[in-house]
Design a protein around this nucleic acid. Structure first.
Length: 754
DNA sequence: GGGTCCCCGTTTTTT
DNA sequence: ACGGGGACCC
């Protein structure tokens, strides 16, 4: 990968037009007055409060284009920061279409990718080598566990995971071990949490590794050190204009980072929405956006309130709900010119989780018949486990869907294992990676061998790989283990010698073949093993795009999201958190019950603040919809296999009644619009919620040949359900009587002739 | 070094 | 219910 940032200051920058007064500014056309103000107020600190669907991204990109087109700054004098790779990519593309390839020279990226670039340049200032490794959470926790065990701590009472979390939160606040208030972690780890934090940082340094928090924290350390004042000034001088996306999600470390860089020119523009702050649990500090005007004196605050996404009913419902929060900067979404009138927000009470799924999928099918593409429908849940019931129902009804979130490609076990091999090749000192694969596939190098290596490694202060080599020169190991270890070390030496000689993809393939890792999965009869072999192939294939293994590893660490290339028409299932920034015509919001949403844990842990964040989550959910929102709540729900009756979410009462239409099955639910102003709870009046009549499947069952050529009577095979007989075919949908799984509807591309 | 049993936790997640 | 991890035994 080329590094545009290393091109530094001497790139010719040809703005398309020579500035002449008055300069034409076509890129400003079509902006509303507030948006235009946000774009044109280039000087000084600016806070753009942009509600959902008010054209935030457009403002950000246009602002950057405006700065460049009017030659206020050259591309490499602009810094644009986002949170996700997706947002960064989107912004880069949009800027490129507006101003052309010079856009590449803007410092544009996520906090972490920009942090990494700075840190690779100046790694030696914090005792690292510029080719440091970026650890994933697995590595972090394993490392902490080792440290805790060395301290004889009970890792069941105090889990490495919890300690990892504590350390991350400290890093989020820009605290190095020396800066943490000693008493802060209380009795955690016998009062030794801070000490462990220090040990952890030392260990990372010897491993030449960083965790995610370090990417920013080390930058801060460098910038805050008086000895590096010149360096800081260099960057301060460089960045004439700074743009920050999703400012409500920044943590304190990020805030300090920005403030340091903006100190000279003070042209910092932060865009965000305090009402969409839903990540406080991972260190985001709403306070950053709330006190922007104090932090950056003389700041201009601009509110974008004209919404181009949702119907007036949806906006009114969302606004009414969020108005229950305190401590807001305050903003009211107004329907913009483009939004038509729509239906009221539907609220629907159902008997249980199964009915909820049934009702939702039925409505989806009805909407589809009425012309809404499936890709314009989404089910947004509070927690991951809720998707299961919907998946099952969607499978049964043969409605294609995708689950967004969950395990990502690079988080799969086989991918992480493979990557550990690559890591040891590029960085022999990467003990964590070496430990991971030393006996994978099983080659008889167990605890005893590892133990001996650790002892030697510690005694000699050398990496494990080196300790292993030394160990092989002694008689300490049994001959068999010694032979195996020598062979492994020899393999690594050979693979390493191929670096830069053999194309990376080929090298990767060779490594995974020769070490026996692929063979291991090929020999595995368990379900999913073939899938893993496939994934490994895909991994090797994806390496084609890289010209160095190191570049690939950085990509893996920083760009975890693998773009979904499938453009098929599918319903989306995801968490409310995952839906932020997305929009759909029709949104389903199930599980609005006390304990589920607002979630019990959110209420317990943080009281009022926790509740308000849950409410913001609800606000995010509602404002994802363009045309239609359906909220559901169930009287009974099975949680951890235990049936519980539940009360409707308090958020339901907070929706403005005039914007809501309560519907119910079979007189299940009276609703306050027609009855009293009081919402009954399930517990108060269980007799009101008689079990509804079963839902009758009204989908036609024509018997014909499917698009894929299947017809009634065919024997087929399905990955999940096994063998079965086709009962009916309709377009690409088949109704199949499976031998074991019963009768289900599936899409014909999921089955093969059996 | 490998298999079995018990216990624990089970909100949200990017980088 | 269920999976992961650790302790324990062969």
């Amino acid at each position: 990968m080329s590094d545009p940032f290393d091109l530094d200051d001497d790139i010719p920058f040809d703005a398309p037009a020579t500035p002449a007064a008055p300069m034409p500014t076509p890129w400003l056309e079509g902006l509303n007055p507030e948006q235009r103000l946000a774009v044109e107020t280039t000087e000084g600190p600016v806070l753009v409060l942009s509600g959902a669907g008010t054209g935030k991204t457009r403002v950000l990109t246009t602002r950057l284009a405006h700065i460049l087109m009017t030659r206020r700054a050259r591309p490499w004098e602009c810094l644009a920061v986002t949170f996700t790779n997706k947002a960064a990519r989107e912004m880069r593309e949009r800027i490129a279409t507006m101003i052309g390839p010079v856009a590449e020279n803007v410092w544009l990226g996520t906090f972490h990718s920009l942090g990494v670039r700075l840190l690779r340049r100046h790694a030696e200032l914090v005792g690292l080598n510029s080719n440091f490794t970026i650890l994933d959470t697995d590595d972090q926790e394993r490392l902490l566990k080792q440290l805790m065990e060395a301290e004889k701590l009970d890792t069941k009472k105090w889990t490495p995971r919890a300690l990892s979390g504590t350390i991350q939160r400290w890093k989020d606040r820009g605290l190095t071990p020396a800066k943490v208030d000693g008493g802060e972690a209380g009795e955690f780890a016998g009062g030794r949490a801070v000490q462990l934090y220090g040990q952890y940082q030392d260990r990372l340094r010897t491993l030449n590794a960083c965790d995610f928090g370090d990417l920013l924290l080390h930058c801060l350390t460098i910038f805050q050190d008086q000895a590096n004042a010149d360096l800081l000034e260099d960057y301060q001088r460089r960045f004439h204009y700074i743009l920050v996306d999703e400012y409500q999600d920044t943590n304190i470390a990020q805030y300090l980072w920005l403030r340091l860089l903006a100190r000279k020119h003070k042209n910092i523009c932060c865009v965000g929405d305090d009402d969409q702050s839903i990540y406080s649990w991972r260190g985001a500090e709403v306070g950053n956006i709330l006190k922007f005007e104090q932090d950056f004196p003389g700041a201009t605050v601009i509110r974008l309130e004209s919404n181009y996404r949702s119907t007036p009913q949806i906006l009114a419902a969302a606004s009414g709900l969020i108005a229950h929060n305190t401590g807001r900067l305050g903003k009211t979404l107004r329907p913009g010119p483009a939004t038509g009138n729509g239906d009221k927000v539907m609220v629907r009470g159902v008997w249980d989780g199964d009915e909820e799924a049934r009702v939702v999928v039925e409505e989806m099918e009805a909407l589809q018949r009425a012309g809404t593409p499936l890709s314009q429908m989404a089910v947004l849940v509070r927690a991951g486990f809720q998707t299961r019931a919907f998946e099952e129902r969607l499978i049964t009804c043969g409605v294609p869907y995708r689950v967004i979130g969950g395990l990502r490609f690079y988080e799969r076990q086989e991918i992480r294992d493979a990557i550990a091999y690559f890591r040891v090749i590029t960085q022999p000192a990467d003990d964590l990676a070496f430990e991971r694969i030393i006996n994978l596939p099983k080659r008889g190098l167990g605890d005893a061998t590892l133990q001996a290596m650790h002892v030697l490694s510690r005694a000699q202060s050398v990496p494990l790989v080196e300790a292993a080599r030394l160990l092989c020169e002694t008689d300490e190991l049994k001959p068999k283990a010694r032979g195996t270890l020598l062979r492994l070390l020899g393999d690594f030496a050979r693979w390493r010698s191929l670096l830069g000689v053999m194309p990376v993809a080929e090298l990767a393939g060779t490594v995974l073949d020769e070490c026996g890792y692929v063979a291991m999965w090929k020999a595995d009869k368990a379900t999913g093993a073939e899938g893993r072999v496939e994934n490994l192939k895909e991994l090797v294939g994806s390496l084609e795009e890289f010209d160095s293994l190191g570049g690939f590893l950085e990509h893996v660490a920083l760009v975890m999201d693998a773009e979904d290339k499938l453009n098929t028409d599918r319903v989306s299932l995801m968490t409310l958190h995952g839906a932020k920034g997305l929009e759909f015509d029709c949104v389903f919001l199930p599980g609005w019950e006390e304990g589920v949403f607002p979630h019990q844990r959110a209420l317990g842990d943080n009281g009022q603040a926790g509740l308000e964040e849950e409410r913001r989550l609800a606000y995010v959910g509602i404002t994802r919809a363009r045309k239609r929102v359906t909220i559901l709540f169930a009287a009974n729900r099975r949680i951890y296999n235990q049936w519980q009756s539940s009360a409707p979410s308090r958020f339901l009462e907070e929706l403005p009644p005039s914007q809501v239409e309560v519907t119910s099955h079979q007189g299940l639910f009276g609703g306050r619009n027609t009855e009293s102003s009081n919402w009954g709870t399930w517990n108060d009046a269980p007799q009101r919620w008689a079990k509804p009549a079963p839902v009758i499947d009204v989908t036609p069952h024509p018997s014909a040949t499917s698009a894929g050529g299947f017809q009634a009577g065919d024997r087929v095979f399905h990955q999940k359900f096994g063998y079965g007989k086709v009962l009916a075919a309709d377009g690409n949908k088949l109704e199949i009587a499976f031998d074991k799984a019963g009768t289900k509807k599936v899409i014909d591309s999921f089955v093969t002739a059996g």
